[in-house]
Amino acid sequence: MDRREFIKKAVTLAGVSSIGFALKGTPFIFGNNKKSVDMVAVRGGEPDTMFKKGIPYLGGIKNFVKKNDEVAIKVNASWNSKPSDGGNTNPKLVRAVAQACIDAGAKNVYVFDHTIYNPDTTYRESGIKFELSGMKAKIAPANNNRYFEKVKIPNAKILKTAEVHELILSADTLINIPVLKTHGSTRMTSAMKNFMGIVWDRAFYHRNGLHRCIAEIFNFRKPDLNIVDAYNVMVRGGPSGYYNSKIVVKKMQLLSTDLLAIDMAASKILGFKPSTINYLNIANELNLGKKIESINIKKIAI
């Protein structure tokens, strides 16, 4: 960068930030002189608008996605259920996040999940395939062992090695978009439980201690951004919602970089005490994040 270019860029930067400063009510894009926000909780809007309202408080998507980055978005698309049934991540939210990443200059955007049911039908039923059609974002396959690579997990007691999806290794930015549901055996599935879908051998988790394995995978890599979709919340009959299920339309969304705090907040939305969910206690032991009491939450109602 020569001197002239530097001056040009400095002037434009100053100009843009002063515009941001001048307009009242809009969050600051450059430099936040207030106390930094750890978690944003939005409620009352559609999933995509809630995301657009909420993300600037975390510094905008540009804080996470740099130009020419490869972005991997881990969604929940495991079940043959429609968007209104709350079994899968809301497709509008997936679209909004993927579009934001593309607009921020991402080179490749991949959406992936090691689905439980057949991926062809689940992506179609969940509406994610339809929403992503015609976009630069692609659905990365994860239904075969060859897309997974064996890695060593540091500081692990049980899950010492795991076969994780190749995107976990190659992606520059990892975004986690779970949907909030109850779960038969672990009580709640949210940001942490969603990362069970990045490994090939899920049976290993079940066989050797489910709660500890759920927490220990994050010693390998944490997601850079978590967005919990709590628009249609399944409060009974999860995770599949195939029988005896109940949906409460809460129209909420949580955004955070902190894994533990967002799951603790999510458990409160479902009406659980965080301490009753075992993997959250283990995550606290492993220092995966801050507790909800000690973070700064920005609440927005639309």
Partner: peptide, 11 residues
Amino acid sequence: TEKEVKTEEFP
């Protein structure tokens, strides 16, 4: 699926 719409504050 049973469905219910509820507007509530963050807990």
